[in-house]
Every structure is written in structure tokens, then in C-alpha cells.
Amino acid sequence: MKRAIPVVALSIAGLIPVWRYEPSIGGTTSSTAEPATTPSASTTAASGTVVKGTTITTDKGPVQVQVTFSGDKITAVKMLQQPNHPQTTAAVPVLISETLKAQSADIDTVSGATITSDAYKKSLQAAMDNNAKSASASPSASASASASASASASAASKVVAGSTVNTDKGRVQVQVTFSGDKITAVKMLQQPDHPQTTAAVPVLIAATLKAQSADIDTVSGATITSDGYKESLQAAIDAKG
């Protein structure tokens, strides 16, 4: 039988990873609680896959967790619903800490918060089961779709560096991104370190994107840079084919 973790241990400041604990607002409002059989939902975020566990109704109030996964690894746990009770408040950081350590719902019950602990573990296990089902649903299809999208993006876009043009002010070289025959971006790889050049470059790039060619006006006060820019740009257009 697993040992019970005393809640009193939580009074020691700094030992509990409280930055992972986000208590829910109005956790005691039972009117908003879902049935215990409500299926969990998952979404994909930049930080990983976020999965909600089922809502477990207890004598103290509803309990529901939200788990963030990176693959199969649990990286964060957040309480969506919890009883508004001092022992629950003290127990939650311990439960979350143990979950991150064990990477499962097989964790100790916190002494003094048995009801909350049991409900937490049930909601956690539901989230883990849902994540496993989602991961195994269609891995080959997901990989195929990802590879196809990557291949399409690669085929649609082409990056070409123009020739380096030596000027009296310094070297000028552009890099052009094409989507089919369309110029979608221009980047300066080399340019003179001069205030007039710095001011002229955004104007030259904007004119290029509008004209979709190197047939653009020279920027007054930056004639040398403008001519070098257009020469390098035309070389990139020619090299693209």
C-alpha cells in the first residue's frame, strides 16, 4: 500500500514547484461540473498537446485536471476545477510534483486530502488515456500529411542569392525568395555601412515587391547602392530561371 504524504510538509517555503500550480476560480461551484463520464478533449499548442481529464464529482466538489504532453512525457499539470478547501489547496502542488516525477497517475495519496487525491488521479489517468489514444489513432497518416506539406512548401518556395556587386561604397548582395515566379521577399546579405544605404534599402525592397522585377527607380542620395542592388537582384532573377 502506498504511503500517504503529509500535507503539513507544504508549509516549508520554496520546496513546492508552485509555478506549475494554477488554482481554478470558483472551484466549489458544483452547478458547472460535468458528469464524471464526460469525455476529455485535447488540443495542440506550441508547448505540446494539451489534454483535459474528465471531471470527477466528489463530496468536496468537482475535480478536473488539464495535462500538457510532449509526446508521451507529462510536462505540466493544471487544475481546472478543485474544491475550495485549505487541505486541497495545500495538496495540489504535491500531487502535481509527484505526477511530474512519476510520469503517471500511480502516485501517493496526500494525507488529509484523500478525496481530492483520488479524484485527481482519476482525472489525470483519463487525460493520459486520451493522449495515448490520440497518438496511436493515425501516426502514419499524420507523418504522411506532414511530409507532403513540407514537400509542397519546399517546391512552392525557392531562395536564390544574387551575385555580389562591388561598389565604391562597399559590397552589395541580395537574397530573393520566390513563390513560383512571384518575388515574395528580398533580404540584404551584404550592403555598405552607410546611413543613406540603410535608409534606401527598405525603399528598394518595397519597390521590388511591387514591380516584381529589377526595373525600379534609383533612390535619390543612394545611387551607387541602388545600382548595385538592382544588378544583384537581376542576377538572382536570372539564376532562378
Rank of each mutant, 00 (worst) to 15 (best):
K2G: 14
A4E: 12
P6F: 12
P6D: 05
I12M: 13
L15I: 15
P17K: 11
R20D: 12
Y21L: 09
Y21T: 13
P23W: 00
G26R: 07
G27W: 00
T29P: 06
S30Y: 13
A33F: 04
E34F: 11
T37A: 15
T37G: 12
T38I: 09
A41I: 11
A41P: 04
T43W: 11
A46K: 14
S47C: 09
G48N: 05
V50R: 07
V51L: 08
V51P: 00
T55R: 05
T58Y: 03
T58N: 06
D59S: 14
K60T: 09
P62F: 00
V63A: 07
V65H: 00
T68A: 06
S70K: 15
G71F: 12
K73R: 15
I74H: 02
I74C: 02
T75L: 11
T75A: 11
A76W: 08
V77R: 02
K78F: 01
M79D: 04
M79Q: 07
Q81R: 15
Q82E: 15
P83D: 05
H85C: 09
H85R: 12
Q87Y: 14
Q87M: 15
A90C: 06
A90D: 03
P93Y: 01
P93E: 03
V94G: 02
L95Q: 03
T99N: 05
K101D: 12
S104T: 11
A105C: 09
D106K: 13
D106R: 07
D108P: 05
D108G: 08
T116D: 06
S117M: 04
D118K: 12
K122H: 11
S123K: 03
S123D: 04
L124F: 04
L124N: 01
Q125W: 08
Q125A: 13
D129N: 13
D129T: 12
A132D: 10
S136L: 13
A137V: 10
S138K: 10
P139M: 07
P139Y: 10
P139W: 09
S140K: 13
A141S: 13
S142N: 08
S142H: 07
S142V: 12
A143N: 04
A143M: 07
A143P: 01
S146I: 10
A149C: 09
S152V: 03
A153S: 14
A156L: 09
S157P: 04
G162R: 00
T164M: 05
T164A: 15
T167I: 03
D168Q: 13
G170K: 03
R171Q: 14
V172W: 01
Q173N: 06
Q173K: 04
Q173H: 05
V174W: 00
Q175D: 04
F178L: 06
T184P: 01
K187M: 08
M188H: 02
M188D: 01
L189R: 09
L189H: 09
Q190I: 05
P192Y: 01
A199P: 02
A200D: 01
V203D: 02
A206M: 09
K210P: 03
A211G: 11
Q212S: 13
S213V: 11
T218C: 07
T218V: 12
S220K: 12
S220Q: 13
A222V: 04
T223K: 02
T223R: 03
T225G: 01
G228N: 03
Y229F: 15
Y229C: 00
K230A: 01
K230Y: 06
Q234W: 03
Q234R: 10
A235I: 02
A235Y: 00
D238V: 07
D238P: 03
D238K: 06
A239I: 08
A239L: 10
G241L: 07
